[in-house]
Amino acid sequence: MTTVQGTGTAALSVDGPILVAEHVTMRFGGLTAVDSVSFRVMPGEIVGLIGPNGAGKTTFFNCLTGLYLPTSGRVVFNGQVLPPKPRKVVQAGMARTFQNIRLFSNMTALENVMVGRYCRTSAGPFTSIIRGPKFRREERETRERAQQLLDFVGLGHTTDSLARNLPYGDQRRLEIARALATDPKLVLLDEPTAGMNPQETRQAEELIFKIRDQGLAVVVIEHDMRFIFNLCDRVLCLVQGKALIEGTPAEVQSDPRVIEAYIGTGPDDAAALESELEEGQPDA
């Protein structure tokens, strides 16, 4: 995987980091779910976010995307401080998927992706009612782009299927297509392979590489260690809301504190982690 690490950075136009999070803290009453986490993502980078259950990974995503207003700290995206509004965040170029899939289940696959185009299109009430050539062109382009994205994630055949009728793995990929439809510079994927079989996981891995090759930065939360270590340029490990260690997959993998953190959450997790670490070894 080292070869991919070396050649992957396709977007060279921006020099500085695309995302900078400074001391982001999120408290729920007495619970500090995210504790002064600082973090940066360079363009064209794939960054992994790991940590035991309840470590605050999803909460951190929510802080980044404006779903939560952090108790303190700030998030700078593409050189500007993000307003805590999901819509504005998407507009600025950061899109996400959800850990528990949140598709528009009674819309078709194509319609789901077309909704993703909302923030990049402009047809207002009057244009929509009068339907001039501009409206029809925009509508056609939206449709074509959505179909392209379905093809891109390998769902080209599901265009008219209702999202709820898709198999689980396809639903995860559809969420990625929907996120890509917003023309993001950075995508945040929250456990994109949860519930997938090994073959689907490999497909997801390829898909994430493909996304990066389009010049996008990717931050991905995962439990599958092998997946993370194959995929990522850099890994951040969160434990109990705190950034435990950040470094290359190899560094994080060999750090005893990471293993300890997983052991602390229960024997099952730790055993799984250790076996996964071993499996990941030859690939890394």
């Binding site: 289940s105 819309m107 923030c119």
Partner: peptide
């Protein structure tokens, strides 16, 4: 239209619609 799709998205899952850029 785009607006109608936005309405359906809101009816289906308001939070997700907002997170996908729907006003």
């Amino acid at each position: 239209s785009r607006i109608g799709r936005g309405w359906v998205a809101i009816r289906e899952d308001e939070k997700a619609a907002e997170a996908m850029g729907v006003n």
